[in-house]
Nucleic acid binder design. Structure first.
Lengths: 409, 409
DNA sequence: AGTATTTACGAACGCTCGCTATCTATACTG
DNA sequence: CAGTATAGATAGCGAGCGTTCGTAAATACT
């Protein structure tokens, strides 16, 4: 450890700080271009200082110059305006699932340059690696970004991810997936920092970014499996690496976790598969119900919520039971975390208000401060958006304090 | 207009940064005095820079000069050594409870200057204010610190504390306490920044500081009531203000929270009062047990654990039941937070290994990553220590200009 | 159409600060 | 009592920021 926390030094360090300050100000107002005068205002620096910093950043390729805005009809000499040159450091986000691979490319300002999704009927681990490569190529081509320009990449994988080794534990559905070192594979393709994280974590990051502001967010991904991500003041909470694994919460007083089983008690109780099973049983018990009509033999999770929305009492009772189980499982965490909001995403979130209201009613009985309960607005793009978001954060964290290197492109 | 985001500026800002860097280095090695050469090493600055900074800090009273260490027999001219002058900014910590008021005074380096505790048989709100004033005076006198020198004060109160207004909700045992604006009262006495926080939060802060390092800590205070504090990488997690209220976790599938009741389900189930009641019932049912022998009519919580430690099966079964209820209540939060360690403090923590092992066994069945389970080493001083700690953090945060950019999103 | 006004860019000057290098001070060693 | 090793003080240099003044480019007014 050379220097402590506060990076001091000579005047060149001071200039770095000021350049970083200017760059940061531009980033904050992205994608709106800024005039130099505005930068002076926002950074509190003197004009020559800002001008010099802007020159340097233009040279290094971090900023791009705009012509005067024709719509801006103000008095005096028109100001030149600068904005982030997004292509300076495009980032890659991956969402790798057993049946679907999604790759997104985003520029430095957070603009989505491309998004490519490919579905398949359950790949093997080896096939999956091939598909990943193809989809990455496709997404980069569509975004017109050369592979060597990519500044950071983040991949989302289900299961519990070890932040450091990049290894994945507890993965369902893809045989041999935990043996694959996805990070190493991606490093071979990309030659840039590559990180791997839990899909629920990344979805939470995306949702938190979309909501904006500070506070604590508990973002639940509810599909066949259940996971959650926790974002506190914009930063992901990882714990020792397995934070947010709500799928393993016990629902019954006799439940215990079997480490061999890749699914946890709560997932078995209220995962989408379980909801469908409950619906089928209820339909069998009540053959004349709307639920039985709607679903027939291959009754689906969606059918349960559809029937409940039509006020079918049989379906409503199923939803009630699901909501109750879920709320009772989540309530302790809500009490302990006391989040600003709880957002539900994933396949089950399509159920809409029927489920949300039922959960909200139950949760109100079990918590002190009742957090806002919402459905995720990002739908299935949440994970890949969060992956890009994290990659962007990585780039900024590495580039902001030291924008010294002049990467001439 | 403040300086926006990142603190940049002229050379005077640079000097402030460097001075802060030096001060920070001294603080980190407190209470050990440092030679200038060591400061040069640690800060990475040049000697004249450090020397100038040290001069400035000596003038301002933040540092004090030591004579050469007679024990340090090294060659050459002996180095002058400097250390934090703790009296530069002493802080006050208060632990206000219904039956006991504790006030501690700490110097800038974290050394305890005085600790005064006064107990009484349940004060009214008005009496409590008077007692607080007296104990503060006493503690300040013992520490030989004039009241006007106090740089910050933090008070701990049970109940849920609103960080901003300083109002307290859900306070038991002290009639009219929630109507009192303790912060305002203390500001009248002290003329320095005053903050108020939950006692469990502050205890957690103290325990986290004692443990050191990073990671997530869940610190449970287990007495008649149950509360917990969460410390993530040294920083307290507050949520919207009521984080850590584990006492309100439901234990039964039919439990609901009654907002009128100041005690929650878990407190009613395994609070010290409840443990004693369980013990009494078990003793009645098994009059020949060691538990019944030990406890007699006014059987206490301590008796239950003592009998269990002597392997009395009746008492052990009570402990088992308590541990099981507690572990089942806490397990969801452990899954979600995935803490590095869970530390149990408060009166019940005196039970020792008997309880801890039982909880650990239960928790192992219900969680994925099993956190370290420990007893708090700080005993009853935890809360006031945490209060002083938070006051210190406040002082440092205000005094150290921190240009380490906190890139939040 | 010409002039005044407004706004912003650009360059020169002075100031502060930190770094390098040198010199002086002090105590232990032989 | 000289030699040596370590630490503290001092002068010169360079880098960067801030202030001030002059200049360029557009619009508004007469």
């Amino acid at each position: 450890m050379s220097k402590g926390t506060v990076g001091g030094g000579g005047t060149t360090m001071l200039r770095r700080i000021n350049v970083a300050s200017v760059l940061d100000a531009v980033r904050r107002s992205a994608p709106a271009p800024l005039r130099v005068a505005e930068l002076v205002e926002r950074t509190g620096l003197a004009r020559p200082t800002v001008a010099q910093a802007v020159d340097e950043l233009l040279d290094a390729g971090w900023l791009q110059q705009h012509g005067p805005d024709s719509a801006d009809r103000s008095l005096g000499r028109p100001a030149i305006r600068v904005s982030l040159r997004g292509r300076a450091a495009p980032v890659l986000g991956l969402d790798v699932g057993p049946h679907r691979v999604t790759v997104g490319v985003s520029d430095l300002a957070g603009r989505k340059l491309s998004l490519v999704r490919r579905s398949g009927p359950g790949w093997s681990a080896q096939e999956l690696l091939g598909v990943i490569g193809e989809v990455i190529d496709e997404a980069l081509a569509e975004a017109e970004v050369p592979a060597e320009d990519v500044a950071a990449a983040v991949a989302a994988s289900p299961g519990i991810v070890d932040e450091h080794t990049g290894r994945v534990q507890l993965v369902p559905s893809v045989p041999g997936w935990s043996a694959v070192d996805l990070i190493k594979h991606l490093r071979g393709l990309l030659d840039c920092p590559v990180m791997l994280d839990n899909d629920a974590n990344l979805a939470a990051l995306a949702i938190a970014a979309a909501r904006g502001g500070t506070g604590t967010l508990l973002a639940v991904q509810w599909g066949e499996r259940l996971g959650a991500g926790i974002v506190i003041d914009g930063r992901l909470h990882r714990g020792t690496g397995a934070a947010g694994e709500i799928g393993f919460i016990a629902t019954d007083t006799d439940d215990v976790i079997n480490p061999e089983d890749s699914r946890g008690p709560l997932e078995r109780a209220v995962g989408s598969e379980a909801i469908a099973a409950l619906g089928r049983q209820a339909a069998l018990d009540n053959p004349k119900s709307r639920l039985a009509e709607l679903g027939g033999e291959q009754l689906d999770t969606a059918d349960v919520f559809a029937a409940a929305a039509e006020r079918d009492p049989v379906a409503q009772s199923v939803v009630q039971q699901v909501a109750r189980t879920f709320a009772r499982a989540l309530a302790p965490s809500v009490l302990v975390l006391d989040p600003t909001a709880v957002v539900i995403g994933g396949g089950v979130a399509r159920a809409g208000a029927v489920l949300l209201d039922a959960i909200s009613d139950q949760l109100r009985l079990l918590t002190l401060n009742h957090p806002k309960l919402e459905l995720s607005a990002l739908a299935e793009d949440a994970v890949v958006t969060g992956a890009m978001r994290m990659a962007l954060d990585e780039v900024w964290q590495r580039k902001l304090p030291t924008p010294a290197m002049t990467s001439t492109t």
